[in-house]
Design a protein around this nucleic acid. Sequence first.
DNA 1: AAGAGTGGTAATTGAATGATTACAAGCCGA
DNA 2: TCGGCTTGTAATCATTCAATTACCACTCTT
Lengths: 203, 203
Amino acid sequence: MSESRSERIPAAERREQILDAAARVFGERGYAGTTTDQVAQAAGISQPYVVRMFGSKEKLFCELLLRARDSLETRLRAALARPEVKALDNQGLKRFLGRAYVDLVGEGDIVLPLAQGFLLGHDPVIGRYAREGFLDIYRLLRDEAGLSPEEVRDFLAGGMLLNTLLTLQMTGLYESDETARELLACAFGEKLDLVVAPTKAAP
Amino acid sequence: MSESRSERIPAAERREQILDAAARVFGERGYAGTTTDQVAQAAGISQPYVVRMFGSKEKLFCELLLRARDSLETRLRAALARPEVKALDNQGLKRFLGRAYVDLVGEGDIVLPLAQGFLLGHDPVIGRYAREGFLDIYRLLRDEAGLSPEEVRDFLAGGMLLNTLLTLQMTGLYESDETARELLACAFGEKLDLVVAPTKAAP
DNA sequence: AAGAGTGGTAATTGAATGATTACAAGCCGA
DNA sequence: TCGGCTTGTAATCATTCAATTACCACTCTT
């Protein structure tokens, strides 16, 4: 994307670049399906640097999981703190939080690694991270948002559907397939254009 | 599991054995995370035989996707054909079909490869298969079950949550984690024991 | 200006893996 | 019983990939 600087960049900043690139690549291709070299190329650096910065591919992915969970929790708490939520019943709150989730998804591929991690239950270390993250979100919605277990379940279910549609790249069929268009419109609602026309931000 | 026969087995039967084994392994570990040798060992044969029987790992996985989709469609149509569905409104029908889905999931790992395939949208050939399968199910629910787009969406969302909980292996936390127990009970309802105590069928 | 710390890569390595080849053993019909 | 077809494997190959090593270049401090 950007090869603006070919100079030396402080490690902390480089680390963020790598995490951003890794979130994109892992989010699209999954853990096992991604090579550290793909991450390196996406970040514009060499493969050994990626490995040395994080120790291993596994540690890099775990870092992404924590980062995604934190982003999501931060975003949900921010939504809960807004004044207009006080006027909402639980049904309305669920919708409001749902829109906050779509916003987060639309801003980049921050949360897709989380969705990929949810398929790795068999992995002794990543699986544990992923389960814990999932339960963290569950508790946040139940305890801080005050939703009932059934309401949390429905919220999470909706989120899983959105994740699935994204990782399936169903959005690529929006133009050409009538059924896909109907499904996407129904699933993403008013936030559809956030995801069907990925922000091609140009200078 | 069964090493009953060490003799020669007709290709058609062997093919089914391999597909069953592959569904289990791919369903648990994902496409990229599974080796053809793991499939071979699970089926009790040698790795080259797996490859030769299906041509390639990719073709084997595509076969699994078709098989899973067909199983699901067959099961849903069978549920729709039962007499008691006529007395149900759409809300009740959704629940009824949901129970049929959980039944199918509980009977084995037939559908988990489908869930894994949904993460492979980036793959030029598998991605296409997976998207088509997904839209097939959508149309079945809309046109044959007569659900509205929103109702189909909610049904699919629920299914995606169940898939996620299974591939996350959240069921393994049922005994030890209070939150996981609550979530699982809420998501699987009366069918919980189908999935939390995997059928250890013994002779 | 010496040298130490930091940012970065080229080259390589060892293991894993999908696929191929070549071959063996059982079965069946003529 | 001979010869061909089917079922199956051992051995191997070519790649790919995560990780390591060894090195270079720049910058700041003193």
